[in-house]
Nucleic acid binder design. Structure first.
Lengths: 204, 204
DNA sequence: ATGCCTATATACCGACCGGTATGAATAGCG
DNA sequence: CGCTATTCATACCGGTCGGTATATAGGCAT
């Protein structure tokens, strides 16, 4: 209750690892293996820390996954929010498709999408994990619906096309893209999928 | 080397369960939980048999999954082959989409697609499982490419649309459909996705 | 130097995993 | 009736799971 009260006033022994870097490594393990298949042994090994350190710093496996998911959305899904700023609905779709494609083509990151992997996983233990991922996806969808509603008001849509329908359609393609990417599809094949999707995207 | 040599000449104690019915129950468990999350305990419980009986009748967990996958393709994916008989490429796509939609809407079967679930699962233990599923998917894709090539030769495609591209595109939508179905999407939402896909499907 | 507090490392916990050894039960065959 | 062959039920195997008790090491204030 005194002194400078600096943000870094650790009274005890200082931790010997960078907590953000460790979280980044945990994210990679979850990304490659999914929640359930990522064992504590593999997590701690990749993070370079021991199990008690992990539990002291992150709580437990589920909380660690949540924090890794936060990091994933913040760093890897940034193109999603920026895509909404495209001038037209078609531009938004193109940015989303190309952003997702670029992610799948990244040589340093794992293939597939952490969200897709986690949503498809169905173990009883991972039920709350799946629910959380689905919930976050719903908020992303809502943002896209809102953006497409603006586009519709601007007269960009052909009649009969609702913002909800196009959002669901685009998300389905993005999910298929991530799934095929995680199944060993080549860059050319995924790129072809993006081009085809843009070719069929409704114009006026 | 004698007698009627009837196909049913079991010398020992006869098995007390129907092997096909047990396999059907195993399929449901794999379908709901995925390969890795389906434990032997849950499998044997659902099949109504004990572990040694399962191993005697089916080999091991992986072989059981393969047989369940055979059953799945034979019974649940029959609409895929019949869809290829539609008169036009557009008709093929529509049959595939509506067939997949109907499966997702079935109240007795689990949601999602066993193939999608198994392909997204990424545990090291399940690597051969994933490879097998991807391989079977590739053969389905090849069949669709072949059918679309006929359609292209018949002048059904607009220029620039290749059979490979449309196949990949359609499979992506089907995968998105299964994934959203497995994530709790409503019938109305999935139906909307099918309608949108048909609306954007290229015409001539 | 002495407490105090926190992080570290080792070893361990009960539960469950896939898979199996073992012996009793049940059929056909002589 | 044995004899053999197959299935059944129980109990068990080593290994791994997520999670933790315990004791030591290390930085701060006094």
């Amino acid at each position: 209750m005194n002194s400078v009260c600096s943000p870094s006033a650790p009274k005890g022994r200082p931790r010997e690892f960078d907590i953000d870097e460790a979280l980044g490594q945990a994210l990679l393990v979850f990304w490659r293996n999914g929640y359930e298949a990522a064992s504590m042994t593999e997590l701690t090994s990749a993070m370079g820390i021991t199990k008690p350190s992990l539990y002291a710093a992150f709580g437990n496996k589920e909380q660690l996954f949540h924090k890794a998911l936060d990091l994933y959305e913040r760093e890897k899904l940034a193109y999603m929010t920026s895509a909404l700023e495209a001038p037209t609905a078609r531009g938004v779709a193109e940015r989303l498709l190309r952003g997702s494609l670029e992610m799948q083509m990244s040589t340093c990151d794992p293939k597939g999408c952490l969200g897709v992997i986690s949503a498809a996983t169905c173990g009883a233990e991972a039920e709350p994990i799946k629910a959380e991922v689905v919930k976050r996806r719903a908020s992303s969808e809502a943002a896209l619906v809102k953006r497409f509603a603006e586009a519709q008001a601007a007269g960009e849509f052909p009649e009969g096309m609702t913002p909800e329908a196009l959002t669901r359609f685009l998300f389905a393609i993005l999910q298929g893209l991530a799934l095929q990417g995680g199944s060993g599809a080549t860059c050319a094949e995924l790129s072809q999928l993006v081009e085809t999707s843009m070719a069929v995207w409704p114009t006026q």
